[in-house]
Simulated assay, not measured.
Amino acid sequence: MLQILGITAPIFILIAIGFGSSRARLVSREQIAGMGTFVITFALPALVLKALIERPLGEVFNGTYLLAYGLASQAVFWLGFLYSRRIRKDSLSGSALNALGMSVSNSGFIGYPIVAMVVGPTGAVALALGMMVENLLMIPLALALAELGRQSGEGLRGALIGTFRRLLRHPIILAISLGLLLSLFEVRLPAMLGKVVEMLAMASAPVALFVIGGSLDGLRARGLLADVAQLGLGKLILHPLAVLLCFALLPAVDPALRTAAVLFACAPMMSIFPILGQRYGLEGRCAAALVVCTVLSFLTISVFVGLLR
């Protein structure tokens, strides 16, 4: 448990630094928003591109793993989406963001260090497979629905066309498309350009966490409890259970890969979740859910590690 705390503690420290800086007025709301724009426009696309081109797709391809993890993530996504949309009467964009928070993990910064401690080198293969599901399926789906929610006042045809055009210009979608193309043809970036991409990718986590802390300053918890409860239950309990169930129903895979998949699903939502929410005016909800889920994940991950062992 102390090892898990050693992984999660730096996250809380960076969030606290962002919160304290905003509270002390060392940075303004406009500067916080500007840093969020930097992450979503440059740093996060670089991180996605780097993850996709580091290994050829055929090198780590495991059909059963992709199917099990993808089906489980889709099941939790649509459960969260329909609950938000039909039961809680949330907006289309809000429902899409809630569903994304319930079904996509912070695989790189929380999930992988924990998985590597438990299963060793197999964790790197599981990380690459999980990133395929998240970057090629889950994130584009959520962004498409969220963008569709911004096309209010238009007919269905106009809304779909507008959504498609906006997605074509979305930095993350562009990075996924370029990364997939380069990976398929096993093209490597020139050393100088690769270094630029690596530097931008390294900036995504600390800046995103700083922005989360700054977004929490002045946040009112009233009205957010239902969202936070839904996201916490979905991400920390339903997602890992769904992954465990899908692996049990499909043909057997390496037990280490199965363990890695469940532990990746145990991780809280990705650290740029509030940055994605900022585009739709939902950064407060997303930041609150991220902080709560990251704190609680210390307990839920420990429980699942014990059960899987």
Results as ranks from 00 to 15, higher is better:
160 L>G: 04
219 L>I: 15
226 A>C: 08
183 S>W: 01
138 M>P: 01
264 F>I: 10
249 L>W: 12
287 A>F: 05
105 S>V: 06
120 G>N: 06
48 V>Y: 04
114 I>F: 04
82 L>C: 13
271 S>W: 12
260 A>Q: 02
121 P>A: 11
277 G>N: 05
83 Y>T: 11
297 S>E: 03
246 C>W: 02
244 L>D: 09
141 L>W: 02
118 V>G: 00
34 G>W: 13
87 I>K: 13
147 E>M: 08
225 L>T: 12
76 V>K: 00
181 L>E: 07
4 I>H: 07
3 Q>P: 04
30 E>M: 13
8 T>G: 08
206 P>F: 03
216 L>V: 10
211 V>S: 07
153 G>Q: 03
89 K>N: 15
103 S>G: 02
300 T>Q: 02
90 D>P: 08
78 W>D: 00
210 F>I: 06
21 S>M: 15
272 I>S: 15
227 D>Q: 12
142 A>H: 03
258 R>L: 15
155 G>Q: 08
197 V>Q: 14
138 M>T: 05
290 L>C: 00
7 I>A: 02
279 R>P: 08
97 L>K: 05
180 L>A: 12
304 F>Q: 03
273 F>S: 08
25 R>T: 13
108 G>E: 07
299 L>H: 08
152 S>M: 08
195 K>I: 09
111 G>E: 00
249 L>E: 09
28 S>I: 14
97 L>Q: 14
155 G>T: 08
28 S>T: 13
168 L>K: 07
12 F>I: 02
204 S>D: 07
196 V>T: 12
215 S>H: 09
199 M>T: 11
145 L>P: 02
278 Q>A: 13
189 L>R: 03
56 P>C: 04
129 L>A: 02
300 T>F: 00
304 F>N: 03
178 L>Q: 00
232 G>D: 00
121 P>W: 14
227 D>Y: 07
23 R>C: 05
38 F>K: 04
183 S>V: 00
289 A>L: 04
210 F>W: 03
193 L>Q: 06
101 G>A: 13
18 G>F: 11
80 G>H: 04
172 I>F: 10
123 G>W: 09
275 I>M: 15
132 M>N: 07
153 G>Y: 01
61 F>I: 12
164 F>C: 08
185 F>D: 11
238 L>D: 05
94 G>V: 01
111 G>N: 02
43 A>K: 00
105 S>T: 10
116 A>R: 15
298 F>L: 15
170 H>T: 10
279 R>W: 04
100 L>T: 06
12 F>W: 08
162 G>A: 03
105 S>Q: 06
266 C>I: 05
59 E>I: 10
150 R>Q: 15
194 G>K: 08
